[in-house]
């Protein structure tokens, strides 16, 4: 835990730096902007009674000459876990490579990225850290249906002059840079996504992809998403379907998953959140079907500081749980 306090003392000192704004990073110069984040949460259900310092991460990014830019992010997670039911605690201070890439800006239509980056699918996956989310928990859709990261190349940009239609096309043909630090271990991943900003309030999008896992499963997927944001309301939904070919069991199965989440801002700092999730997996060894309802409350004294509480009702009531969390982005 001493590392956590060193981390907090170091990054809190930014709060008193000239022109520093919480959540915007510390700009050394155009080539180096530094940031950090952490989250703590407490989870309680019939099998878990746990305090966790989940993320502790630092990131650096900046612009380089000749239209290049970079980003590097290292994270230790879960940094510290105290399990009150088991009476155990565990610390993990090993930093993992969360993101590490180089961008080349060729034009608004063609930009290139090389390295390890977040899979550009939907909304949830692109804002994966606690402080940017409106609930402490993640929907199963975001954990089980496609790899969260790509280690490879990507081309992306806008297809129209008004910058309303954005595309991404990505390819991975190797292991993840940090292969023990990804939700689905894979050594091949190909995908594309399109997003259309219909207006300032409405966005829609869709993705397709294919990946091959270490467990010798070939998975293809299709995804669709939509978002409506008009203060005080925010409604977003994402759904995906996967086809899973298991080359060990010689079987075929599918997954369907998604969520619909609504948020009502009582004022700029306080919000009520509700989410419905559905996830079905027909694979023989993991067969499951879940309906999950989440109700929660979000308090942000500043946008980069998030205090949240939620309760999950699961179709399997044994999995009902309460989660509270606190997170900060520096």
């Amino acid at each position: 835990m001493k590392y956590f306090f060193i981390f907090i003392v170091f990054f809190s000192s930014w709060l008193f730096a000239d022109e520093y704004k919480l959540g915007h990073g510390y700009k050394v110069d155009n080539a180096l902007n530094m940031g950090a984040y952490f989250s703590v949460d407490y989870t309680n259900d019939k099998s878990i009674d746990r305090f966790r310092l989940d993320d502790m991460a630092v990131l650096a990014y900046g612009n380089l000459p000749s239209n290049f830019s970079y980003l590097a992010e290292f994270e230790a997670a879960p940094f510290y876990v105290k399990d009150y039911k088991q009476g155990t605690s565990q610390t993990n201070t090993t930093p993992h490579k969360e993101r590490m890439y180089l961008n080349y800006f060729y034009s608004d239509m063609f930009n290139f990225r090389l390295g390890k980056f977040i899979t550009p699918i939907g909304y949830w996956n692109l804002e994966p850290i606690n402080v940017l989310r409106d609930t402490s928990s993640n929907p199963l859709y975001s954990e089980k249906m496609f790899p969260k990261f790509v280690t490879g190349v990507e081309t992306y940009g806008y297809l129209d002059e008004d910058e309303q239609i954005q595309y991404h096309f990505f390819l991975q043909s190797t292991d993840d840079i940090d292969k023990n630090y990804i939700n689905i271990q894979n050594d091949f991943f190909l995908g594309a996504s399109l997003g259309y900003e219909v207006s300032d309030e409405i966005e829609v999008g869709s993705s397709v992809g294919y990946y091959e896992t270490y467990e010798r499963k070939d998975v293809s997927f299709v995804e669709a998403n939509a978002k409506y944001e008009n203060y005080p309301f925010l409604v977003q939904t994402e759904w995906a379907y996967t086809n899973v070919q298991n080359n060990v069991l010689h079987s075929n199965a599918y997954q369907i998953g998604g969520y619909l989440q609504g948020m009502y801002n009582l004022n700029p700092k306080n919000a009520l959140v509700s989410r419905y999730e559905y996830f079905k997996d027909t694979q023989k060894n993991v067969m499951s079907k879940n309906h999950i309802y989440v109700i929660g409350y979000s308090y942000r004294p500043f946008y980069a500081v998030s205090i949240k509480g939620e309760y999950q009702f699961n179709s399997d009531s044994y999995l009902n749980k309460a989660i509270i969390s606190f997170s900060v982005l520096f």
Partner: peptide
Amino acid sequence: LHKNRNKLNKYWVKKHFQGIQPPV
């Protein structure tokens, strides 16, 4: 920009995580 300060702050906090800096 058609955005108030709160909305812009939220926008740039998210962009910071994506590695994008606001204008000088």
